[in-house]
């Protein structure tokens, strides 16, 4: 900052919001299972399995109560390569945001794939979970997916 009569003053600052969210019983159970290294979804009235677990049936709007375990492996249904991660990205190297449909699930979930380079990515590729070193009951307990 200039000492005398600067043309324009600027200042950086950080605005932080310390949110704590209640998870409710369904998302809470999903996260509790993640902490144990297991992935569960919920079964809908028409028999589909939603992962991450959803609280209400998309057709009947009834509360969903039946949990179903799914695999740690699945298939990439679509993806987008992030060549230059920015500061808040959880992977500080090039990676893909991808929709991954886990074996046993009927819908894909959004997560990251650490494939090393863009050429290693393709729709339909099989990937598996890479668990975080320390699991705390958060979606980031899945550190990312990696090619299976």
């Amino acid at each position: 900052m200039a000492e005398t009569n600067p043309e324009l003053l600027t200042k950086s600052f950080e605005l932080g919001y310390t949110y704590t969210r209640s998870t409710g019983p369904v998302i809470g159970h999903f996260l509790t299972e993640l902490r144990e290294g297991r992935i569960v979804g919920t079964r809908t009235s028409d028999g589909r399995v939603l992962v991450p677990a959803a609280e209400y049936d998309p057709v009947s709007a009834e509360a969903l109560t039946e949990f179903v375990s799914v695999a740690e492996e699945g298939v990439v249904t679509t993806w987008s390569w992030v060549a230059e991660p920015i500061s808040h990205h959880l992977l500080q190297k090039p990676f893909a945001f991808a929709l991954v449909r886990l074996d046993g699930a009927d819908v894909p979930m959004l997560h990251m794939v650490d494939a090393g380079e863009e050429g290693a990515m393709r729709t339909g590729m099989r990937v598996r979970v890479r668990w975080a070193a320390e699991r705390r009951g958060s979606i980031t307990d899945i550190a990312c997916f990696e090619p299976a």
């Binding site: 200042k11 605005l15 932080g16 998870t23 996260l31």
Partner: peptide, 21 residues
Amino acid sequence: VTGIEVPINLQYEFTAGKALT
């Protein structure tokens, strides 16, 4: 698990503008 901490931190670069400067 009954709750998760999800802080949001926004980084601003404030410019005062001519009048406020």
